[in-house]
Design a protein around this nucleic acid. Structure first.
Lengths: 105, 105
DNA sequence: TGCTCATATGCTAATATAGTCATAATAGAA
DNA sequence: TTCTATTATGACTATATTAGCATATGAGCA
């Protein structure tokens, strides 16, 4: 399904991943997200829009503020799994490097 | 971690998702992958290279053929979760549409 | 109303990505 | 060696994505 690809592609950006991570403990205002991820306000706003479009996050207005949260906790699981895959791969590479050193030295 | 974002971004392409799905039952030769996903050989080769670079798949040569497989089964779980998120979202939208129709009609 | 804070959107330039076509590289067979 | 089959790579074009800046929108307050 193409929509699944869209979801993964949208999650596949460092800043958006950072935003999703920051929302893990619970909902947050944009004014909290912006300093937390260390990017310009307009940039964060656009990334939030992308995350909204694919349904990863939702938002509501509260006075002048906008509060965002992650709709589906499975999004966190996806992030966790991605990190697991990466760290297993890094561990393999480290092991391989150690073997190479053992043969050389 | 940026590498996790890379992984998700690479998985986030319809054709690459299709390739990963096709490899779910087990390893396959490029000459099987190409017709299965219905894309040009050079295109498939480049997408396989991307999947290799982020460590989703690995390959070995067998005579003139190259056999690919998915390194880490967690990649399948990521695909499954992405589809789950999408289908839950679609179900929500359908439910919402039904409510709208109920109010209107 | 006029002002300020918070957020979103338009526009532009830089960069990245994807597909197409041609060709290179490699292995095996004749 | 020459031919063929299989896969990978390079050049090019088209399109998409991203960030930065300016500005619009909208809510609440003076």
């Amino acid at each position: 399904m193409d929509l699944a690809a869209d979801l993964l592609r949208v999650l596949g950006h460092p800043l958006r991943l950072k935003i999703v991570e920051f929302l893990r403990p619970g909902e947050r205002c944009v004014c909290e997200i912006v300093p937390a991820v260390g990017a310009e306000q307009s940039v964060v706003s656009k990334h939030l829009a992308l995350l909204r479009h694919v349904g990863v996050v939702a938002c509501r207005k509260e006075g002048p503020r906008v509060i965002y949260w992650v709709r589906d906790p499975a999004a966190f699981t996806i992030c966790d799994l991605a990190r697991e895959v990466v760290s297993r791969r890094l561990a393999e590479l480290a092991e391989l490097a150690a073997k190479v050193r053992a043969v050389k030295g």
